[in-house]
Amino acid sequence: MIEHRGEYEKMFRLEGQLWWYRILHERVAATIKNYFGERRDIQILDAGCGTGGLLDFLRKLSYKNLNGIDGSTDAVAFCHERGLPVVLVNLNELAAFRPDERYDVIVCNDVFCYFEDDDLLNLVKALAHRLKPDGLLISNNNAFNVFRGEHDLAVGSGRRFVQSDFNQLMPDAGLRIRKATYWSFILSPLILAIRQWQSWQLRSGWIKPENVQSDVYLPGAWLNETLYAIVSAEAKILPRTPFGSSLFIVSKPV
């Protein structure tokens, strides 16, 4: 999404409201709390932080040592509007950025889909190298090619993942997976139907590639809250599910 200013503008406006972002941010915060309890002094890095919605959410929860990096000048500018300490960094060059700094938590959400295999391994190795010995790497990723649709094209996403991709990748990078689950399981039939319809429209020419739009839009308030309630309940009742449009992974150094 590095050149997609319009998508960053939508993200900036909607991250605090849209059900999907709210659920993701709460998942990240719950994971951090599960491992670090009530501590608020831990060092946190959001690598590929976009417009800073997660960092803003964690700041409101009183986390103090927050840092972010992103490869988009637009994204960094939006982060600065929020007053967040975010630096412009090409993630392909992460190894050269503040090489002596180590973090308790690194979050890298919906970033891996922009990297080919060799570059992705180098990125994950660089992230692992920045973790403290008992640190966490938290990563959310778009999942299953069957969910590929207009959204992927709009944000420039190159790939989708299944857990077996990370079962190979993480050990090669010096990490072990502690938790992995797909999510939006309950909504997956609806999401799948929408994405398949989008894909058919793209193939048939009903939607032109230059006119694609992402899924980052705010539905009516009642629908947004209903979707939030459904996926929030799923997270509580079904902590691990076998299918969904996203894959949430927590890893630690070996």
Rank of each mutant, 00 (worst) to 15 (best):
P219T: 07
E3G: 05
P171Y: 08
F12Q: 09
D110I: 02
R130E: 06
I44M: 11
D56W: 07
M11L: 03
L169E: 01
N167G: 09
V76S: 09
V87M: 14
L88H: 14
D56T: 12
R82S: 08
G83F: 01
R178N: 14
G174M: 08
G68Q: 12
I207W: 00
W222L: 13
F166L: 08
N211S: 10
H25A: 09
R13A: 11
I138E: 09
E38R: 07
L218M: 11
K125G: 01
D165A: 11
G220S: 13
K60N: 13
I44S: 07
P171M: 01
G68M: 08
G220P: 06
F12K: 07
L127V: 08
L192W: 15
N34G: 12
L127P: 06
V155I: 12
W206V: 15
K125I: 01
R13K: 12
S245P: 11
G53M: 05
T31L: 01
R176E: 11
G53D: 05
G52L: 03
R130H: 06
L91N: 02
T51E: 05
Y103P: 07
V87T: 15
Y8N: 12
M1Y: 14
D100R: 10
S251I: 08
F97Q: 05
I69Y: 05
L153Y: 05
V216T: 10
D70T: 10
N34S: 15
Y217K: 14
V162W: 06
S157W: 10
E81W: 06
L127F: 03
A173D: 00
R130A: 08
S214H: 02
E234P: 10
N34T: 13
D172I: 00
V216E: 02
E38N: 10
G37H: 10
A180L: 04
D134N: 14
G50Q: 02
F166I: 08
R176P: 03
E101P: 02
R159D: 12
E93F: 06
K252I: 04
K33E: 15
G53V: 01
R203A: 07
G244D: 05
W20E: 01
L91C: 05
I23K: 11
I23W: 07
D134F: 08
P239W: 09
A95D: 15
R22W: 00
V76N: 15
E93Y: 06
F36M: 05
L121V: 08
L137Q: 07
V155A: 00
I106M: 04
A154S: 12
P189E: 06
L218Q: 10
L218T: 05
K33F: 15
Y63D: 09
A47C: 11
F161T: 11
L190W: 12
I177H: 04
F78H: 12
A154G: 12
R102Q: 15
D41V: 14
K208G: 04
R240Q: 11
S246W: 15
I237K: 08
E225Y: 09
E81V: 06
P189F: 02
N211V: 04
E234D: 09
L18V: 12
L24N: 10
K252W: 00
L58E: 03
L91D: 06
A221I: 13
Y63E: 09
I44V: 15
W206Q: 14
R148C: 07
L238W: 13
F243P: 02
V111G: 02
S72V: 11
N141D: 09
P242Q: 04
R176T: 10
P209Y: 01
K179H: 13
W20C: 00
T31V: 10
D165P: 13
